[in-house]
Design a protein around this nucleic acid. Sequence first.
RNA 1: GCCGAAGUGGCGGAACUGGCAGACGCGCACGACUCAAAAUCGUGUUCCUUCGGGAAUGAGGGUUCGAUUCCCUCCUUCGGCACCA
Length: 949
Amino acid sequence: FGGHTCFARDFAARRLRAHFRANSLFDLTLDTEAPDTFIDEERMATKKKTKTASKKKMTRKPVPKKAAPKKAVKATKRPVKVVKKSAAAPKAKKQAVRKAVQMTRKAAAAEPRYEHARIEKKWQAKWEADKLYRAVMDGSKPKHYALTMLPYPSGDLHIGHWYAMTPSDARARFKRMNGYNVMFPMGFDAFGLPAENAAISRGIHPKVWTYKNIERMRTQLKSMGAMFDWEREAVSADPKYYKWTEWFFIQLFKHGLAYRKLSAVDWCPKDNTTLAREQVVGENRVCERCGTPVIKKNLEQWFFRITKYADELLDFSTIDWPERIRTLQTNWIGRSVGASVIFKIAPPSPTGRGAGGEGGDEIEIFTTRPDTLWGATFMVFSPEHPLVDKVTTPEHMAEVEAYKAEAGRKSDIDREAADKEKTGVFTGGYAINPVNDERIPIWVADYVLMTYGTGAIMAVPAHDERDFAFARKYELKIVPVIQPLGADSRPPVQESDAGSMDAAYEHDGVMINSGPFNGTRATNDKGLQNPAIKAVTEWLEQKGVGKRAVNYRIRDWLISRQRYWGAPIPMIHCEKHGWNPVPESELPVLLPDDVAWKPTGESPLKLHPTWKNTTCPVCGEPATRETDTMDTFMCSSWYHLRYLSPDYDKGAFDDAEYNYWMPVDTYTGGAEHATMHLLYTRFFHKALRDAGIVEGAEPMLQLRNQGQILGADGQRMSKSRGNVIDPDEQVSAYGADTVRAFLMFGYRWSEGGPWTTGGIDGTSRWLRRVWAMFTESARAGQPPSSEVVKTLRRRVHQTLRNVSRDYEQFEFNTIISSLMELLNEMQKAREAGAAGTKEWDEAVEIYLKMMAPVTPHIAEEIWSQLGKPYSIHQQAWPKVDEAAAKEDVIEIPVQVNGKVRGRITVAADASEAAIRAAALANEAVQKYLDGNEPKKVIVVQGRLISIVV
RNA sequence: GCCGAAGUGGCGGAACUGGCAGACGCGCACGACUCAAAAUCGUGUUCCUUCGGGAAUGAGGGUUCGAUUCCCUCCUUCGGCACCA
């Protein structure tokens, strides 16, 4: 391992160890050919020998040590402590449990080994042969549609896939055992850039690359032992799938929800394609796929009218989605309430200075602060605003043209950097402020964006930071209109004092210099709950110069991609008849196989010699096809519908299946899709609903996000960092059940975290112990006391209660810790002779059922070895016996002045008076009371007693 | 800057109605076994301690008999947005 870090060496060593262990290279008992009894006896005998030998040594050796002065002190002091702490039972209890655990751990070593590889292979084959997880409609059962995000077939399954999917699988299995008819489908999001990039760099056809990867990943997915119904598999690059992707596009087009528009769009120069606004990320505005900074291009492209649904998408009242996702989507949609106000362009002044407009022109602006209208001392137009040319006077024309040209050349990053110094030029034109008829100058500046509001703003320098900076730089008038509440605070009341302002005032105050509204209280809240805004908006409406208005940050969804490996956009352009959809009878528009993939910036389909040539569906004259393909997020917006009936050819899905299965009951996947897939799919469903294709407002009722597994170094896993954990290696070393259980045990599922080398060993030990204890035959011994079996039952049913709740709530880590705890309790019970009793058998049966969703193979194997009916996964979830789970004697801590000073043991149903009496009688408590009468005694039933002195 | 989430031992994390902080596991230390490892097993493991106790859930305050949990202020980390008028 020369040249590697210590970590790498350590990691490699561990892997080797695991590998040796898995392949039995260390273990002397691994001769599976030999009869089991022989192995057992042989081993037991050796164990016993070594045991007695060691005991002898033990008793002899420590003697001189104990004679050492230090130890002697401890030895004498100890008994005192023990006596004192005899009240503190938990410690003793804990030790007893520990002892029992150790005893059975020893016993475990004697059992036939847990051979995960053999067991897992065996059961996976049987489940598949038996179609155990086939989900078919069944009106007699409640349905549960469990969906987990489908993978992109990029090559190999990642540990992240396991982390996302296996807990989802466990939850689906839990639901199934609870009587639901569960569908848990799987598929591949198979179109997209990586396939095409592989084609370019390696010369493999995208289709070949993709399907080869799917083949491999399907095998890897099967190694999870998940309950995927493979007969429902859907692959988005399959013509029988994308036929309906195309069909959906046409439906959206027919309902006015898909349209073509020329606009400045985000373009990734590396991937040579346009991107949706959602796919441009980060401060530097980079491509979400490859990290290259995007540039703007003016192109005619296809858009989906997601903005039409902005308001509806803000309503989460009918779905149970994480707060985080709701916030992200809400912010992304970015709803602002304010007013639109109409400013007239001023007619040319008699002096020749002033507007170039001929009069009668109006300009509408959007503001969230109509209460500051009286402070609007100038207007600013975006350089792209169509009225710029009209308002610009001849003497300013050259300067304005130069500025526009400069703005056009700048990238968005340069232009939109918030800390950049603002620039602009005067147009020579003026507008009339409708509230006070002031003539205010019109400027052009690139800090005003054409893409938000109307592309023009009223500038209120006294109360807006950006306008203030601009006004200071170009020496424009500043009129304060909000006076702070304190007498001597700024800004000044008079316009002439504005020169002393050093920043815009953006806080609460009282309106001044505002005609009829002087004295009105103005808070800094936006929206109509601000009394000043409410009053002014109503006044504007009465005067007919403005009205209440809402604006959104979200833009329409740009879906055109200048790439080959995507679903073709089924549209035809004719010189005479413009754009028309391909007739539905001709769907799908098939992707041709014989294309040259060259990164030219044009779709490879455009370069195909014949593909684009077709005829106009209206007139039959020669016409051309759209050569762009669809964003892959279009394909994934409806995959949950294709799973309903992946082979159905009379429609995108079979209505009967839809009516039975939809909507999705639980959806699991990464939060990184918050403003992309998770927003698109909600939009898509609403659009289909309005097109009469689906029903209901939302496609997915409940969403839960898992976190991310990072490399052991806390960084994102990546090949270049060398910190990738390969799930296949983990599976071959530990088995799928261990990997599943570790991923569920080691993390809060919603958080994720760094991979911990060695952490998996704990889970591996757990399963080996389970194996050992449950496969070992009961030894004859003294019968257990009734207390032992009663305690056992109580623990079992208490655990069942907790575990059931945790499955329901996606809290997988505590499921496994509860199971580990119960195993420790069971070992204790076993040592006390409980094995062989009917309570023991019940405990084992419930235990296996509780672990079955997490570790399906080992549970099935032990279940079958115990002679129980196949399959454990078809068993009903056990019911909690509340009576058995109830504690009859409880220990309650007694607090004196907020500190635990003693403990009392009382019957669980003891009366408050009895508990109080017992607490006050407690020796330790008496000591702390020191003869004083307690001021107050609080008894919390079953919890604690708090005494205030 | 704005919005959101989260801060608990060496680590992952638990504490589900405001009621015994640190469950469960990892790691570590020492010991048993071994020629030696590995595996397994045993003991211990929040910190301080004069061995009586005391302190502690990012920091500081508040409410309460009682706060990891509720409220306020601040700090840190992560995620998102970012000239959005």
